[in-house]
Structures are given as C-alpha cells and as structure tokens.
Design a protein around this nucleic acid. Structure first.
Lengths: 212, 212, 212, 212
DNA sequence: GGATAAACGAGACGGTACGTCCCGTCTTGAG
DNA sequence: CTCAAGACGGGACGTACCGTCTCGTTTATCC
C-alpha cells in the first residue's frame, strides 16, 4: 500500500492540495491531549481524528497505527543535550542520563517514557514498527558515542571497547527501570549511573554485544 | 406471607454449584492455542470463550481481562528448578538462569516470555494486574534468595548484601533482554550471567534497592 | 417435559417435600412489585427469582414463562361482582363494566389491564398460553351470561340471541379501548356501554370521540 | 498551530457519505424473511443485520428497535384502495375493509396484521413508537374520511357526525378481531361491516359468533 | 428415629442477544 | 487533488438473561 502513498521526501510535481502541516500538527496535539486524559491504551484513531477535526482517512493516510503517531511524537520531542563536558565518564553519563530520564518523565511537556514503552510493546508484534523504532533509537543515541569514545580516549575504558555493546549496556538499566515503572527521580540519577558503571567497567572489554 | 420466609439477614446457607475445573482448563488451553496461532494482541476474550466452548460470562467471571488468563498460564507453567548446587554464585546462577530463560523460551511447551512481557505492558495501565503480577513474581523468585544467601555465606558477596536489591539486579539484565526481544540461546546464558555478575559484585554492598 | 413433573391433581404416594406456598406467594408478590417498578417488558425470570429469594429452577418449575406468572396474578385478582340487579340490560352492563374496568385500572391493587394485554400479546405466539388464557376468560365471563339471559327474558334482546356472540360483542369495545390504551374513567363507563349497545348508525351523532 | 484550523463554530460544511438505499432495502427484506421463518418475537436485531449483511451499527443508526423496522415495513406496504363508489355506506365500507383486511392477511406479500399488532404491543411501553404509530395511522385512514363524509352527504349519517369518532368506531371491530386473532376471511367481511353498523341491539339475533 | 425423596436456595454453566464502540474503507461534496 | 465528515460491513466489547444443571440443606412423609 505504501507505494501508492506520497512520500514526504520525494518532490511532488502534481497539482492539487498538498499535505496539510496544520492537520499533522493538530493530530499530534490531539494525541498528546488524549494521552494525558485517557491514557495510551484508551486512545483510538477515531478519537484522535475527531479531536483533531481531521478525517479518519487523513489520519490513516499518514500513520498506519496509533503507535506510529506515538513515534512521531517521540521524534518531535527532542531535548537540548549539551556536548559532554569530558571530565569523566561518570559525570558525562550523569549529565546525559539526567536529560534522557528527564525527557522520559515529561520535561518536554510530554511523558515520552510512556510513549516509548508502549511503542516497544507494540513493536513486539509489528516488525515494521520495530524497524522504525530502531532507526529512531540509533539517531537518538549518537551522543552516547561521543561520551564513550571520549572515555576510551581518556583511558577510562579499554581501547578495544565495543561501542554498540557499551551503548546498549549503558541504556539497559534505565530502560529496565522504565519498563518496570521505577524511573528514577533526578537526585537518583547518579546512583543509577553508578549501578551501570560497575557493570560496564568490569565487563566492557570482554565480548561484543549483539547490538540492540 | 413474606414474613414466613427467610429474610436476608437469616438467609439459608445455600451454596450453589462450584467452579468447573474442566472449564478452567479448557480456557487456559484455548488461550495457549490461540497464542500460538494468532499471537497475543490478536487474542480476544470472545475467541477464547468460543474455542474453549465456554460462555463469555464464565470467562469474565474468573478472569477480568485476557492478561489475567495469561497470568494464570504463567502461574501454572512451573518448571522444575533444582536446589542450587552451592559450588559458586556464578554456577548457581547459570543453572538458575538456564531454567528461567528456558521457561521463557518455551521449554514448558508455552512461550512464557511472551506472556510475561505482555502482562507487564498491560500492567502499566492496570494497577490491579500489576499487584497480581508482583505477587506472582515474589513467589517465583524465592529460589534466588537461597542462591544469594549461599553466596553471602561463602563470602562471595559481602555480609550486608541487600537481598531484594540483589535479586532485582540479577533479574534485570535477562528481563531487559526479554523486553528487547533478544533472549539468549542456552549457550549464551553463561555470558549473560557474567555480564550481570560484574555489576553485582562491584555494587552489591552499596545501597538498598527500592525493590521491584 | 410436563410428564416428568408432578401433577398437582394426581395422588402421590411418595414421600418428600411439597410445593411451598410461601414461595409461590413470594414470586407473585415479586412480580407485582417489579411490574410497578420497571414495567412488564423489563421483568425477567431472573429478577423475579432474585426478588422473591427463590431459586430460578423453582420459578421455572411452576411457571414456564413470565406470562404464566402474569396469568397467575390475573387469576388471583378476583373482584366482588354483585349479581345483576335486573333492571335493564343497560344498567346491568354499566354495573358490570364498572367492576371490570375498575379491575383493569387497578382497583384490586394491581393494574390487571396491563397484565391482560401483555398476556394476549404473548399468546399470539404461544398456543399453550392462549389456551390457558381462554380458560381463564371463560370462567371470568360467567356473570355476563346471567345479564344477557335476563335481558332475553325481559325481551330486551330477541329469544334466539347467541350467548357466546353477545358476550363477545359486549366485551369487544372495552377490550379495544384497553388495547389502544384508552380505558375509560369511571364516569365514562355509561357512554362506553351505550356505544356498544347502539352501534355506529344509532349513535354516530351523539358524542365526539377522543380519537385514537 | 490549531489557531490556523477551523474551530467548531466555523466548521467546514462537509457532508459525508449518504444513507445507503440498498442497505435499507436489504434490512427490510431480511426482516420480512425472518418474520416468515421464525415469527416476530424470535426476530433479533442481530439476526436482521446478519441476514441483511449489514453492520449492527448501521441497523441501529436508522431503527432504534425492531418495532421501528416493522413500522417501516408497514409504511411501505401500501395497497391500491380505489375511491369509494358512493353507492352506500355499507358497500363503500365493505370495499374498504376488504382491502384493509386483505392487506393485514398478507395480500401485499407480507402479513401486515402481525406487524401491526406487535407494533401496538411494543408501543404500550414506548411512547416514541406510539407517536410514530399514530402518525402512520392518521395517514392511512384518510380514505375513511371520504367514505364517511359521502355517507353524511347522502343522509345516511346525521350531519353533525364526528369524523374522528366515526373512523375510530369503524376500525374498532376489525381491530378487535385482529388483536384476538380472528381476522375474517374475504367472504366474512360483509358480516363484519354489518356488525359494526348495527351494534348489539340491532344485530344481536342475526348470527352466532365463533366465540373468542 | 432413621431412611428416603422431593423441593428448595444458591448460583455456575454454555449460550445468545444486547447496544456500543472502534476498526479500516469508501463516498460525497467543499475548497 | 486533498480534505472534513461520516456511512458502511465487520467484529469485539462487557453485560444481562436464558433455561439447565449441580450442589448441599431442609422438610415431610414412610418404614
């Protein structure tokens, strides 16, 4: 079906109305509002369209499932993450995690963590969504590369450190806490990072990770 | 006339028919069959009842949602976990994790891991289910107590080790792998345990965990 | 099925408990209460049993449908109808109709008219109920025989008058009014009787109709 | 962003898809078929939708209850009723009643009488349906006006005859016969009209009644 | 008095229909 | 040509009753 749908990136020379950016924004806004009001599982495509004053067909044209709308919201919810200060792996990670967990908890005005975990759950049964989610994740974890490479440069981590596995390991504990509904408060971030580092430093050089 | 009949306060102690065990088994069997055939999200209470040749009201009487049926299946899917051999924490954990991951992968004839993660996802929005899940988890992790206490007794872990936190930490990495759809093959269990132990040994004495 | 059920009239030599009159009364009472509270169509066997603190099987044992319970109530709702005074057909009929319509309107503490018309409606599709209704009707219209025979004796009606047809004709207009929800008030009974006696040609110019 | 989109008060005047006439016809057809097969009380909205290959929501959108579907069928079942020949009230009424009773008995391919009496029964508990039924009745009895007015013009009925009451009286006897399941055969129509015209006293000695 | 059997209350059971909601598609006319 | 509005066939939701069926308990006779 997707070959019959216009691609956002391809230049369209045809006549007629173009995709309405106002509608796209209205749909995302409606989704966010419903998320706050009724919770993710109770959101329906029907309600999103109604609330956005959009036709159902319009919503379906651009997002095949509600998880894709959630993913759009996640992608839009970027947060300013400053470059690592390069003092130490621990401090760089604390800075980074403070931002990430803050984003998840709702610092961007949206409980991104809720969206993330529900997207993961739906991706268990939807390979297409899983791929989209992975792409989003790769893009978002780039900053971690710089942090870990700097740590390797400073000798905090061994030279042969597997970058992919290290990123994966670093994110695993906060992700686990997100999945088990125990996201740390800001003043608990340091401890969470320490938990992670204990494992990372001891085992980082051992073997490559399958990558996530 | 009604004064000659028993009133609410002095009602006869009638009992009525009892729950049918055959029906309960048929429902669980139907659920498992549908899980294999159409996948968890596509299972409906309607289809479960139809397949089990049970009335919908009967299914709803005993299980308020399909996640509760899944939880019943999880509870029934006990697997023989031998007492730890007590050689070392690492070997005891490898034995234990081999059983747990095997159960998750389907060694009991049921992909318990799929059920577990979907139950967690539904519990995000259902406190009652979350509580039931927690009760099930507590019961199931008792063996870990013995393993960790033995390790403390042998001096592998410091005397002040927080049991709840240690259990939580030990399960976090396999759980993370389950949630991200990368459950290890049997020959990868040892490595998974090593990943976990690196973190556990370094940080086990540091602070108490909130407990999961 | 009824051959497997005890016949009330046949002598039973076997032992065992007898039909509980208290329960029968409680069921009828519950039905009447529900009729007032929720209306005939919303009455269910389940609710009657619950309200009467009777088992559902007990209710079904004695009344196969709710219409049969209604018929039991109708049969019990006898009203004192004095013998005709024998002055004239018109006056005797007015006396009689006043009682009958009063019974239908609820003078016996029960809107018998509602029960009657719903029983008729259910009898359209239930021959067994239709037969029971007819038996009840025959018994109830005996007084009309005396009234009409007296009128024949006085010469008000010709000697060859068909009794069955006359009774039928006399009841048709009030029955029609009952079925069309326009049961007359007490002071309109005389007019209703005159309508019946006169027919269209004789009475057409007399009074306006409320319209149906 | 939403400020650039139409608000509720200035909503675009979109129209949407229109009611499907094919579906309406299919529903009425399915209802008629089920009426013949299982009888009115056994008809369910579910079965009607299934048979018509229509969604249940579609059926409920246009008909709130099955009685409303029945009423739609009644309204559609018009029959050619010729203008009164104006010979006499009796002959005009016989012509008219022959058509009406024929319609009720099924001359239009549908046992309209069954539908009518069940609609009346349901209207006892549904004021909205009662109003719809009354509207239908008013429209359908217009021909009677002409018949009765002609009779007044010829002097067969007195000049002050109340039209509404006369129509009501004329219909009461056939209606009573319909309600008591004794609709006359074609060759009995004349007698039914005579019964109506004469009243009890004038006609009581003429013929025996079948009894109710 | 003990055995026996019917009727009882309670209520679980397999079913089915209820009326609502949402799915994803299609149709209509406005812009 | 896209959009909103919304009707459509379909199907699951969770509830309510249907009429039947155990379950023990109670009750009334009979041995």
């Amino acid at each position: 079906m997707s070959e019959t749908r216009p691609q956002l990136s391809e230049a369209r020379s045809s006549v007629g109305a173009r995709r309405s950016e106002a509608t796209e924004a209205a749909v995302l806004e409606a989704f966010a509002a419903l998320l706050a009001e009724v919770g993710y599982p109770a959101i329906t495509m029907e309600a999103v369209a109604r609330r956005a004053r959009a036709g159902k067909a319009t919503v379906y044209r651009w997002w095949p499932t509600k998880a894709h709308i959630a993913l759009s919201l996640i992608s839009k919810a970027k947060i300013e993450i400053p470059a690592p200060r390069g003092l130490s792996l621990r401090e760089d990670l604390i800075d980074y995690m403070t931002r990430v967990v803050g984003l998840w908890r709702g610092d961007a005005g949206l409980p991104v963590g809720l969206l993330v975990r529900h997207c993961y759950a739906e991706a268990w049964s939807d390979p297409e969504l899983a791929a989209a989610l992975q792409a989003e994740r790769r893009e978002r974890w780039t900053m971690l590369n710089a942090i870990i490479e700097a740590a390797v440069g400073r000798g905090e981590l061994p030279p042969g450190t597997d970058l992919a596995r290290a990123k994966d390991f670093v994110m695993s504990w906060p992700f686990y806490l997100l999945m088990t509904d125990r996201l740390p408060a800001p003043d608990e971030i340091a401890r969470m990072v320490d938990d992670t580092l204990d494992g990372l430093r001891a085992g980082s050089s051992r073997r490559p990770s399958p990558g996530i």
